[in-house]
Amino acid sequence: MLTDLYIPGDSLLHRARPAWKLAILFLYCTALFVVTHPVVLTLGLLLVALGYGAAGLSPRDAFTAIRPALFVLVIIFAAQLWLAGLSMAVYVTLRLMALLLAAALVTYTTRASEFTEGIMALLSRAPAWVPKDKIALAMSLVWRFIPLIRAQFDEVREAQRARGLERNMLALLVPLVVRTLKTADEVAEAITARSLD
């Protein structure tokens, strides 16, 4: 099943509205990029640390947020060290970490369903030329399709393993893509047959 990166909790951050959290995140990032001063960065890092504390998240959660980018961060640190010296390297790397941590904080404290509800609420107020029904249909279909295609992929992989082709990219992809296209026809027919068009 599909699970989001939400970490349950009952803090102020968990209860705040997603739109507010997004607005604050954008303000935060803009501030860090517009004002390049060590004091601002220190304040920013403190603010993020406070946020993690307030949301009841552990340092391990913070590390999980940075880990995927760790490799790139090390390269950037090395490049800056070589190009501009130690202080600049530390500054740039810490700023990137602050951004990653702040963005992850919003993701950790907001359910995917809350964002979806927010998007749907926005859509209901959108002007007439926006194809709201179609956007809503696509959003709800994709939730169902990801487990479906994952199951189809497992089937294709099993079949190709029997042929000794499970590491052959083409032998995996072509059947999967053609199956996907067939599924599209079947699902579209089913939707049309129920007059949802």
């Binding site: 995140l25 961060l73 963005a103």
Partner: peptide, 9 residues
């Protein structure tokens, strides 16, 4: 996943 991939390098 999550918002942090859109704020990373």
């Amino acid at each position: 996943g999550g918002l942090s991939v859109f704020f990373g390098p």
